[in-house]
Computed example of a mutant assay.
Amino acid sequence: MTYIDYYKILGINKKATENDIKKAYRKMARKYHPDLNPDDKEAERKFKEINEANEVLSNPENRKKYDKYGKDWKHAEEFEKAQQQQHHRGRRQRGPGQYSEEDFSDFFSSMFGGGSARSQRRNVQFRGQDYNAELQLELEDVYRTHKRTLTVNGKNIRLTIPAGVKNGQVIKIKGHGGEGINDGPRGDLNIKFSISNHSKFKRDKDNLYTTIDLDLYKALLGGEVVIDTFDGKVKLKVKPETKNLTKVKLKGKGFPVYKKEGQFGDLYITYQIKTPTNLSDKEKELIKELAKLR
């Protein structure tokens, strides 16, 4: 395996912070994204390298292994375990301080192919590395179950995203991580959801909250208002003499409950009464008459 300088790929140095890595990755990913560079094989290759570099350097544990073992960082745990085993075996067979290069070469041969019959007998399967990815979505994106394609290490993976996923939630996709060693099982793909909310609703677990303006006359006399929800428009009756900051609940009009089809939270609406401005002379006279009656 050829050594790949992940720091150089992202245009940063080894002292870069996690924030530096994140900024560099986003900048490079935008530049070489396939959607912006259609039919550009070189851009596609660079995009794969950028994703691979970010996969390693954005994970503190992976970065530590990479800094220590270079191109062999994926096998760091196996290397260290093998060294410990060979250390104890060497002490029993040769005494303290006596080691054979063959002890270590057998292990490396068993992992990467070739080697003596002795090493072939000791071939050990190792599970592949887990991959970690972050998927950025809008709140309205996770109101309904839908499919989406995610690019991880240059490979496109088609995912079904369940309705009701929460911000920061991690979903594990088994068998979509790194390849195993010596025909060992593949690792898993862990997807962390980063959900932004630019809607007029505030989400709290499965409930939604919003504030709507209500004109003074409708608050006093009653009437109807039309409310926007993620599931369409709803007509709502306003009671006469509704007070400012009155709260009403629309049952089942909140957010879907994760992995419980057909179950929803509630939508809470707060009325904010708007005082009329730019009154005409006639309106002022009528209000004065009303004030006298009160």
Rank of each mutant, 00 (worst) to 15 (best):
L57T: 06
T242H: 08
K172R: 15
S194N: 15
I273R: 07
L214N: 09
K202I: 10
Q129G: 03
Y69W: 15
L214E: 10
R89K: 13
K46Q: 14
E55M: 14
K192I: 01
K41F: 07
R26F: 12
L36A: 14
K48I: 04
E42M: 06
N123V: 15
I171A: 01
K174M: 04
E49G: 00
D72E: 06
T160N: 13
R45T: 12
L139P: 08
N156R: 14
D188E: 02
V248G: 00
R94N: 15
G115V: 08
Q169W: 03
P162Y: 08
I4A: 09
R144D: 14
L159A: 08
G113L: 07
T151V: 15
Y258L: 15
D20F: 10
Y271M: 10
D213A: 13
L216C: 05
H146A: 06
P276G: 09
V234L: 10
F255C: 04
L139M: 14
K284L: 14
L159T: 07
E140P: 00
Q125L: 06
S100E: 11
S116H: 08
K74P: 04
T270L: 02
K205S: 13
N37D: 02
I157W: 05
K205R: 10
N167W: 05
V225W: 02
D228R: 09
L236W: 05
G97H: 08
Y32L: 01
N132Y: 15
Y268Q: 04
K74N: 11
I195G: 04
K68N: 07
L214C: 08
I157V: 13
P256K: 04
I227V: 15
N207A: 09
A29L: 09
A53V: 06
E55R: 12
N207G: 03
S105T: 15
K15V: 06
R144C: 01
E140N: 11
P240W: 04
Q85S: 10
N167E: 07
N13V: 03
F193M: 08
G11N: 10
G95L: 09
Q86T: 07
F264G: 02
